[in-house]
Amino acid sequence: MSGIRPKPLIMGILNVTPDSFSDGGKYCSPDAALAHAQNMVSEGADIIDIGGESTRPGSEPVSEREQLARIIPVIKTLRTHLPANVMLSVDTTRSRVAQEALAAGANMLNDISAGRDDPDMFTVAAKAGVPIALMHMRGKPKNMQDNPEYEDVVEEVLKFLVERAEVAKAAGVASENIIIDPGIGFGKRKEHNLRLIRELSRFVATGYKVLLGASRKRFMGAICGETRPMELVGATIATTVLGVSAGVTMFRVHDVKANRQAADVTAAVLQM
């Protein structure tokens, strides 16, 4: 026996935006969002990650007011109708949006800026006592894919995330509530993404929980000769299997059922 591993958690993506790269415009109304969230939960999602601002390459920022108008009705609807044990995460870099989302029923934060866009994010997370995911990104979504370069992508991303985790702890966030995310596809070339996935065990070795968000990412399409994001389910499954094998415990995905199965079977094999 290799020892008991925590069950991999599947975070289903719920974009309530008109312009996300894979599913923009599909789930903007509370009713459509609820139907999709219920389907993801039935397929095995543990967490629903709700975003009101697209962060695809080249995207423009969205105001706090617009984010709140998009996500608050959805969060309230989901909290009323989904099982209490399903976590609701809000994908935002703004502390006001985070605070109002938590008041509406969210109980996790997902910050792609790792607290750099708004340092008060850590104060909000600390006061609420909720988990917060901190992601690495080179630049901003608008320009992050403009010729990203690294001397050693694994070392640089790892150093950044550990430093941001320390800042979060200094603001009062408990270590067990910090989740680090290497930011696959955020300011990285294909070879950078592949190296980060190959070295996921180094992120796990920090002792923080690790989130992997590789779902339907463009770099996999370049490998597979596929330009349609929705046709990258198999490619995403490969990253989930590699992640579980490395000790990653949280996976942010579009295709819940396939990745739930892949994660559970991989975990069962490793458990033997």
Rank of each mutant, 00 (worst) to 15 (best):
M1W: 04
P8Y: 01
I13Y: 04
S22W: 07
G25E: 04
K26F: 14
D31Q: 14
A32T: 11
E43I: 05
D49P: 13
G51D: 14
P57L: 02
S59A: 15
E60G: 09
E64V: 15
A69I: 11
A69M: 10
A69H: 14
P73H: 09
P83T: 08
P83Q: 12
A84H: 04
A84M: 04
N85M: 02
M87C: 02
L102N: 07
L109S: 07
N110P: 02
S113H: 09
D118N: 10
D118M: 01
P119Q: 04
T123M: 14
K127P: 01
A133T: 11
M137C: 15
K140R: 15
P141G: 11
N143T: 10
N147I: 03
Y150G: 13
E155W: 02
E156Q: 14
L158E: 11
L161I: 05
L161D: 00
V162R: 03
A174H: 03
E176Y: 00
I178T: 07
P182N: 06
P182T: 11
K190C: 04
R198V: 10
R198G: 13
S201R: 10
A205G: 03
G207P: 13
L211A: 01
L211C: 13
G213S: 15
A214M: 03
K217G: 07
R218N: 09
R218T: 08
F219Y: 05
A222Y: 12
C224W: 00
G225K: 00
L232Q: 12
A235K: 14
T239W: 13
V241G: 09
L242K: 08
V244L: 05
V248Q: 07
T249K: 06
K257C: 06
K257Y: 10
Q261C: 06
D264R: 04
T266F: 00
A267W: 05
Q271N: 13
M272P: 00
